[in-house]
Computed example of a mutant assay.
Amino acid sequence: MTTLRIAHLYPREMNIYGDTGNLVVLLKRLEWRGLTAEAVAVGVGDTLPADVDIVLGGGGQDAAQGDIGEDFVTRSADLRSMADDGVVMLAICGAYQLLGREFRTQTGRVIRGAGVLDIETQGSATRLIGNHAVDSEWGQLVGYENHSGLTRLGDGVRALATTASGRGNNGEDSTEGAVRDNVFGTYLHGPLLAKSPVFADELLRRAFERRAGQVLEPLDDALELQAAAVAAKRPRT
């Protein structure tokens, strides 16, 4: 039996709005199918295992991002190599920004990113915050956004989803998140995968396809989809 290996980046610092729940969702969806996974927590200074199938990163408050930002960038070469090799990645909010080329603060300070995603983020006084449902090729994704970093997509990525004006990556171009090969970035907390089961299974499908060509059996997602429908109707403020 194939066992997936999942690296969870900075679970102590980067777990705002329940982002660690994305790991729980993936593990449970494997367990319900009789499949197994090994989760490896990677903190500041820890070795990032080379032989992983999925890399997860969450969001954190600005102070937490400052704590891990320098350590994150030291992993740039490893993360780029993994992305080039087809490793599945899901990065939420702060981790999404850090996978980009750079983050420019309101004061003009330039913080170098890992360069996995062709995106740039500009800090601003504008804050995009509230419940959020977006349209993607894997159906509706439902989560919660809260960020003042405004992200622009380069030519090397495409948007994960489309959204209403005033939300998403930057509040202007109706994009949300970014995709490059098997790398996905998004501002959706919540945790995202708990209310987006089709997308959760897409991540697992890609990981298994890369590892062993294994086919996933379908699950009954009625409860998850019902939760998503309720969450999508909640007021934004």
Rank of each mutant, 00 (worst) to 15 (best):
R109I: 15
T107Q: 05
H8P: 02
A161P: 11
I129C: 13
R127N: 13
N170S: 05
C93Y: 01
T186R: 00
A39Y: 00
A114Y: 09
L30K: 06
F103A: 14
T237W: 00
L26A: 12
E120A: 14
A232R: 02
A229F: 01
G143L: 07
I119R: 00
G168I: 12
D135I: 13
R109L: 14
G86K: 00
L27D: 11
P11W: 05
F199N: 03
M82W: 06
R180W: 13
G69V: 03
R158K: 12
L160Y: 10
D135A: 15
T121H: 00
N169I: 11
Y10H: 05
T175I: 10
V116H: 03
Q122P: 08
G130P: 02
L150E: 03
R12S: 10
I16T: 13
A212R: 05
I92Y: 05
V88K: 05
D84C: 03
E38K: 10
S174L: 14
L27N: 06
A159F: 02
V179N: 01
G94H: 00
V116W: 04
L99Y: 05
A41Y: 02
R167F: 15
S148E: 07
R152D: 15
F184E: 07
G113C: 11
G86V: 09
A227M: 13
T36Y: 07
P218W: 01
G166D: 04
D155E: 14
L223Y: 08
P49D: 13
H8V: 15
A194I: 10
E224F: 02
E172F: 06
E176Q: 12
L225D: 00
A39K: 04
F72Q: 05
A207L: 08
G69T: 06
P49Q: 07
Y187P: 03
T2D: 15
T237N: 13
G86M: 00
L9V: 09
A229M: 00
N169L: 05
V42Y: 01
P191T: 13
E70D: 14
T186M: 04
L48V: 14
D62P: 12
T186W: 03
T105M: 02
R234Y: 04
M14Y: 01
V110M: 04
V52H: 07
G213K: 02
L30N: 06
L141G: 12
T2G: 11
G43K: 00
Y96T: 10
G108K: 01
T20P: 01
G60T: 12
T186P: 03
